[in-house]
Design a protein around this nucleic acid. Sequence first.
DNA 1: TTAAACTGTAACATAAATTATTACAGTAAC
DNA 2: GTTACTGTAATAATTTATGTTACAGTTTAA
Lengths: 138, 138
Amino acid sequence: MVFSNLEFATLVHIMLLLYTEKESEDWLTSDYIAGSVGVNAAVVRREIKKLKQAGLVVSKEGKNGGVKIIPDSEIDLAKIYLANVSDKEEKYNNTNPKCAVGGSINELLEEIYQQTDLEVIQSLQKIKLSSMYKNLKK
Amino acid sequence: MVFSNLEFATLVHIMLLLYTEKESEDWLTSDYIAGSVGVNAAVVRREIKKLKQAGLVVSKEGKNGGVKIIPDSEIDLAKIYLANVSDKEEKYNNTNPKCAVGGSINELLEEIYQQTDLEVIQSLQKIKLSSMYKNLKK
DNA sequence: TTAAACTGTAACATAAATTATTACAGTAAC
DNA sequence: GTTACTGTAATAATTTATGTTACAGTTTAA
C-alpha cells in the first residue's frame, strides 16, 4: 500500500544496478538498464531524471554516454524515496464544510500523512544500497 | 505518497462520522454519509463493506436502516488501514532474471515493503478516533 | 399488505494516473 | 560525418480509481 506503483521499485532497481557497476569505466545506457528492469528505455530516462535532480547520479550525453552513480555515496533508500516523491501532492475528498467532520477531516489527515511519511522515511534511511548489494543472490 | 488514493481518507471520514454519532438512536444512512464525505452513496456502501468485514461497524437493511460503529471500541487508524489494505497486492516490475539485480530485486523489495508497512501500522495504532474527535473544529 | 426507505451489489461509464511507445533534436566520440 | 548515446515531447495504451445507475431484497410502519 505504501508503494502503490512501480516508480520506487524502478528507481531502486536502477540505483542498485549503478551501484554494482560503480567501479566500472563504462557508463550504463538506458537501453541496458531497461533490459534489466523490464521497462522501456524512455521510462528509464524519465526516472533517471529524478535521480539526477536528487543528485544521486550523473549522466553523460553522446556516444559512450550513459549514467553513473555518484562516487563515495553510502546511499540509503530514503534518498531514493524522496527523489521520487518530491513533486507529488496528496489528494483529499471534497468534503462538506457544513459538517463538523467534513470541515476538519482534511487538516487532520494532513497531519497524519506527514507523520506516516516521516516513519517511512526513517525506516528507509536504515537500508543502504551496500546492504542490498550484499543480499543479492549470487 | 503512503496514501495515494482517497479510500483511506474516505474510510476514516466514515468512521469518524459514526463515532460522533455513536450515542444516537439512529443509524446513519449512506446518503447522509455521502453528503458529508462528498462522494456517491454507492461508493460509501462499497467502502462500508470493508469496514463491516473488518468488524468495525454493523449495518441494518431496510427502512430506518443504516450503519453504526461497534459499541465500546477504542478504534485506532491502523484497524482502518488494515480494513482497506487486506485485499490488495503489491506490484513488481517484470525484471530480467538473467541479471543479478533483476533476479533478486523483487524479493528484496518485498521485505522492505513489509517493513515500511509495519512502521506505518505502528504509527497509525497510536491515533484513536477519540483523539481525532477531540481535535475537530467546534 | 402495501408503500416507503433503506442496504447490498452488479454492471457499466468516466476520469485520472501510470506505463509504454515512438520520434527526433542535441551532443560527444571516434 | 557517422554512430551511439541522452533529453524530452507527444501521444497511445493500460490500469486503477471513482462515479453513476439500477434494482433485488429487507425492514418498518401506516
